[in-house]
Amino acid sequence: MSDAATPSHSPAAAARIVEFAKQPLVVALILVAALLYLGETLSPGFASGQQIMRLLIVAALLGIVAAGQNLVVLGGREGIDLSVGGVVSLSAIVAGNLMAGENAGIPLAIVACIATGALFGLFNGIGVTLLRIPPLVMTLGMLGVLQGLLVVIRQGIPSGRAAPGLADFVSQPFLFGVPGILWLWVVIGLLMAFLLGRTVFGHRIYAIGSNEQAAYMAGVPVKAARIALFVLSGVFAAIAGICLLGYSGSSFANVGEQYMLPSIIAVVFGGTPLSGGKGGYTGTMAGALLLVILQSILVTINIDESGRQMVFGITLLVLMLFYGRGRSMRA
């Protein structure tokens, strides 16, 4: 180790360093640090403790949605869940109405929301596996249904308020000065790492994601596993919806829509290619953080909305160049 790490001019050591630096997680973390530095230079105080805490909370919301998206993408076969945004909105509204500003309503709201998310995930999973509808089509159609359902529930008036306990959980220090939602995100991160790395189910996800036929031959219950992925995606989106309600105080129209495509980008920035079969959640967490910091910097610098969007679009494209690009054609 020591002789490899010394700055010798041996090509092997250099190659190893390059190999290390090319890991998506490392790329994302380096970019996060660089962006924080950039933000601090552009507007002093950007990287202050309080600001970073706020960024982390926003990133946690996106990161929790991205956990489910990550699982679906890992499962391969063009796996993608476009309905997460709808589930987030629905969960926020259901939770807001059930708790109606009372702490006593929190447990019921959590159970109801997770059940709702799981149910829609189950529909998606059944459509994708048993009926063999392409995931993009199935979840796109489900998104339309969810958006319609939101209109019915809302009846045109904003309804539902977060319970004070939930709001505190999201924004007030809970343990060691860190809000509960961040602890929740850490726990989810550990659970995902355990699930993907140490459990049979985790290995099956990679197996069906990289070669479904081979996994089937090896006895993996491919359909059940894939349905489980979609159910988990719905559950994570529902959890994010509850937290989002706590963050914003009340639920308003289509709050979740902003998470649909960014959750996919967070997964890609985290090093999980959309073709599935490889990658993990640790990278996705860094990817979510990266996206949130980037957006926050754009809000900080003094340009109008149009310029902000243009810069954001171009920056996303440039960042994508850092990650796995498709293979070039070879004869």
Binding site: M310, V311, F312, I314, L316
Partner: peptide
Amino acid sequence: FATSIFFTG
């Protein structure tokens, strides 16, 4: 999706 953000901007 990224280009759509740019075009919208």
